[in-house]
C-alpha cells in the first residue's frame, strides 16, 4: 500500500498537464454550446433552468471533494503515508471554489425561481457550513507555523467536519419542520428529459476535468512547498 512519489511520476504529471488543460477547455466549450444554445428551455422554469447546468456539477464536486479530503485524511492517519496528506492539501482549495460557486449560482437561480436569494433549507445551510469547513481546513493549516503539526491538526479537523455535516443536515431538517412549514416547493425532478441530461453530463465531465487539472497543478505546488519547508508531509 505504500506508494512513494518519485521524479518519474512528477514528470508524467508535468507532461500530462497541457493535454489536460486543452481537454478541459474543449469540453467546457462543447458543454457551453449544449447548455446555452442546444437544449430547450424548461416548461416551468424557462431559461433560468440553464443555471442548473453549472450549479449541479459544482455542488456535486463540492461534496465529492470533501469526501475525498476526509477520506484521504483518514487513510493518512491509518497508513501514515504522506501521499494522502499531499492529496488532501492539493484538493481542498478546488473544493472551496466549487462550494462557493454552487452557493453563488444557486442563489442567482433562486431569485427568479423562488423570488428570494436565499432559503434556510437543509441543503443550502449544509452547503454554507461546508464552505466554513473548507475555510477552517485551509486557514488552520496556514495559521500554525509548525507545518508537520499543522497537517495533522487540520486533518483531524477535516474528519470532525465530515461527522458534523450529516448532523447539520438532520438538525436543519428538524428545525424547518419545527419553525416553519415548507413554503417553497423544492426542486423535485421525477423525470428529466434526455435533452437536458446531455448538457448536464457534458458539464459534469468538464468540471471533473477542471478538478483533476487544478488538483494536479496544486499537487506539484504542494510537493515543491514541502521540499522547501523540508518536511515529509
Amino acid at each position: 500500500m505504500y506508494i512513494k512519489i518519485n521524479n518519474n511520476h512528477i514528470e508524467l504529471i508535468k507532461s500530462a498537464n497541457p493535454y489536460l488543460i486543452f481537454a478541459t477547455i474543449f469540453v467546457f466549450i462543447i458543454g457551453l454550446y449544449y447548455s446555452l444554445f442546444q437544449s430547450p428551455p424548461d416548461y416551468i422554469q424557462g431559461d433560468s433552468m440553464r443555471i442548473m447546468y453549472i450549479h449541479v456539477p459544482s455542488a456535486w464536486f463540492a461534496l465529492m471533494t470533501y469526501s475525498i479530503l476526509a477520506g484521504s485524511c483518514v487513510l493518512w492517519f491509518i497508513t501514515r503515508n504522506p501521499l494522502f496528506n499531499v492529496v488532501a492539501r492539493s484538493i481542498a482549495q478546488v473544493g472551496m471554489v466549487f462550494t462557493l460557486m454552487s452557493l453563488i449560482t444557486g442563489s442567482i437561480w433562486g431569485k427568479p425561481t423562488w423570488g428570494v436569494w436565499w432559503v434556510w433549507d437543509a441543503r443550502l445551510t449544509s452547503m454554507l457550513i461546508l464552505f466554513f469547513l473548507y475555510i477552517a481546513y485551509i486557514f488552520l493549516w496556514q495559521a500554525i507555523s509548525n507545518k508537520e503539526l499543522a497537517s495533522k491538526i487540520s486533518a483531524a479537523l477535516a474528519i470532525i467536519g465530515f461527522i458534523n455535516i450529516p448532523i447539520i443536515k438532520f438538525s436543519v431538517d428538524w428545525w424547518n419542520t419545527l419553525h416553519q412549514p415548507a413554503s417553497i416547493s423544492k426542486l423535485s425532478a421525477p423525470s428529466i428529459d434526455i435533452s437536458m441530461l446531455i448538457p448536464l453530463f457534458i458539464m459534469t465531465i468538464a468540471c471533473f476535468l477542471f478538478l483533476v487539472t487544478v488538483s494536479l497543478i496544486r499537487f506539484r505546488l504542494v510537493l515543491i512547498e514541502n521540499k522547501m519547508l523540508r518536511t515529509s508531509n
Binding site: 457550513i129 466554513f132 469547513l133 475555510i135 477552517a136 486557514f139 488552520l140 495559521a143 500554525i144 507555523s145 509548525n146 503539526l149 499543522a150 491538526i153 483531524a156 479537523l157 470532525i160 467536519g161 458534523n164 447539520i168
Partner: peptide, 19 residues
C-alpha cells in the same frame, strides 16, 4: 487543536460555529 495558532480568534470562531 489551535494551541499553536496564535491570535486567531476569527479562525476559532469559524471552526466552532458549525459545531
Amino acid at each position: 487543536l489551535t494551541l499553536g495558532a496564535k491570535r486567531t480568534i476569527f479562525l476559532k470562531t469559524i471552526i466552532m460555529i458549525p459545531l
